[in-house]
Design a protein around this nucleic acid. Sequence first.
DNA 1: TCAATGACCTGCC
DNA 2: GGGCAGGCCATTG
Length: 113
Amino acid sequence: MRAEPKPFFEKVYEVVRLIPFGRVTSYGAIAKYLGAVRSARIVGYAMNNSHGKDVPAHRVVNRKGLLTGKHHFDGTNLMQQLLENEGIVVIDSQIQDLQKVYWDPNQELKFDD
DNA sequence: TCAATGACCTGCC
DNA sequence: GGGCAGGCCATTG
C-alpha cells in the first residue's frame, strides 16, 4: 500500500459506488473510464480488495454479463440474489436483459477530476 | 528487485 | 458466427 493520494483501486471504488440502483456495468467500462481499457483485469483485481468495503461489487460483471466473481462472495448465489434484489433478472449467474440494465460510466459520468 | 497472479478483454482460427 | 489462446497493467509476496 503506497501513500498515493488516489490509487487505481480507489478510483475503481468510486465508479462502482456511482453505479445506480438496478444497474450493472462491466470491468472494461470502468477501466475505460479510468483511461485504461487494457487494464480491465486490474479493475477485477481492485474488486478483490473492495471485497469487505462498502463497494457494490455485485453490480460489476464481465462483458458477457456473467457473474464471474460470484464464488468470491460469501455464498455461491449470493451475488445473483443481490442482483435479483435490485430488479435485475439473473439466471444461472448470467444477467438477462444485460443491455437494458447495463450502465456505462463513460456514457453517464464525465471526467471532471 | 524480480517474478507470479488476477472478479478481464480483444483478436485470430 | 462461435470457440480458443494470448496479452495487457497493477498489486502483492
